[in-house]
Amino acid sequence: MFGVRRQKTPAPVGAKPVAESAGAVAPSANLPIRAETRQDRSRTAYFSKGQFLARQDRWDMLGRLIAETDRTRATTPSGEALAAVLAVGARDDAVRHARSAIQSTDCPVPMGVEALTEIAEEHPESWAIHLVAARAQMDCAWAYEGQIDPYALPFAPSDAFMARFDVASELIARAEELCPTSAEVAAAKCDLLAAVPEAGDLVDALHRDVIAADPTNPGRLRNYGVHLLPRWFGSYSDLSQTSADLGAEMAADWGESAYAWMWFDALRLDPEAGAVLDAEYFVAGLHSILDRTSDAHLANLIAAYVDGMKPAAAPDDLSPDAMKARRLIHAALPDLTERHLTELHPQVWARADALPGATHAGPLSSGRIAAATAQAKSAVDAAVAARALAADQGIARRA
């Protein structure tokens, strides 16, 4: 459906190596550019389908589509669950209005968000519609705290925030009764922890439930790592230890990839966490991800990520250990691009800073795509220059 291959038992990103290519394609500024890829079209199609069905009040069909997409665990290569994209599209109109309408914690709950909860009540047997309504309530709650894509727990959550999460919790409880095997319901339970006192005691159990429900999806590992940051429910020590433990547990299926996915978003959101990162293990994990798939989407995602680790973009107050990790990661760019980058995907570069399921799941503007294209070309040129310089220096040393 919508350009995504479905499988009853999808292979994990790190499951089995693909056959080695006959030879690496050397990257250059002349790499072909795909303004829109199959993955981009798929994401846009799912978002638009969810939005269209909601606007047409075709809730029964929407509920069945979300449920079926969740059942097959369809995702993008980077771990964005397409059932979640459908749900984002379905609530997008209501949530956009809510974010513009909420100016303070005294503002009433916008009618569109309340309407989705009423629609869920009118569909008591559809867990997927309950999920859409619950996610809208959570989005609304974060709007009361001034956060669009949540980046940290509120220091002192408002009553409005807590009230929306109470409603969302009730909706998710009903969804879980209807479909206890849903990966999206399990993921929503993790996000409900934002309003749970002493939530740190539940983080590991709930995230492991999500991974068990959707074991081939790297997005589940990415979210787990984020929730182990100090700004959420953990500490640098928790993240360091858990990522190492889980990486070892999952090594048979994922190789070194699981460790890299656990740190992927966490390190970007909190650069200081790099002080406890095993940077060599992380870089090996990035190579492992790309060695086990020929997917150009992932090659662009990881190239954009590594380019974003350039020391010049680091915070001024970053510790020496964290800066050292950042330099080591960025130094991997020439090798990664030479071995794996065969074409440029501007939409991937434009979304590289987003968490799976972030607010801009829908189509991107032409201006944003043009800027991402320029960024990608600049990064590739810099990587090619670095590779050439290293080769020249090697020749000079041998001479």
Rank of each mutant, 00 (worst) to 15 (best):
F2S: 11
K8L: 14
T9D: 05
A15M: 07
V18D: 08
V25A: 00
A26T: 03
P27N: 03
R38F: 01
R38I: 02
D40E: 00
A45R: 04
F47V: 09
F52A: 14
F52D: 12
L62V: 02
L62T: 03
G63R: 15
L65F: 02
A67Y: 02
T69L: 03
T69F: 11
V85F: 08
A101M: 01
D106N: 12
C107L: 07
V109S: 05
E122W: 03
E122Q: 09
W127T: 01
Y144W: 07
G146H: 04
P150T: 01
P150H: 14
L153K: 15
P154K: 07
P154V: 07
A160E: 02
R164Q: 04
V167A: 14
S169P: 08
S169N: 13
C179D: 12
S182L: 01
L192N: 03
E198I: 08
A205D: 07
H207S: 04
H207Q: 06
R208N: 05
R208L: 08
A213N: 04
A213L: 04
T216Q: 15
T216P: 10
P218K: 15
L221V: 05
R222I: 00
N223D: 06
P230T: 06
W232L: 03
S237T: 15
D238S: 07
A248E: 15
A251D: 07
D253Q: 07
Y259V: 09
M262D: 05
L267H: 10
L269D: 12
P271T: 01
V276H: 04
Y281S: 15
S294W: 11
N300E: 04
A303N: 12
A303W: 04
V306C: 05
D307I: 00
P315K: 12
L318H: 02
D321P: 12
A322G: 08
A325G: 13
D335V: 10
D335S: 08
L336A: 12
A350P: 01
A350N: 00
R351S: 13
T359V: 13
A361R: 11
S378A: 14
A383K: 01
A388Y: 00
A390K: 13
D392A: 13
R397M: 13
A399L: 10
A399R: 08
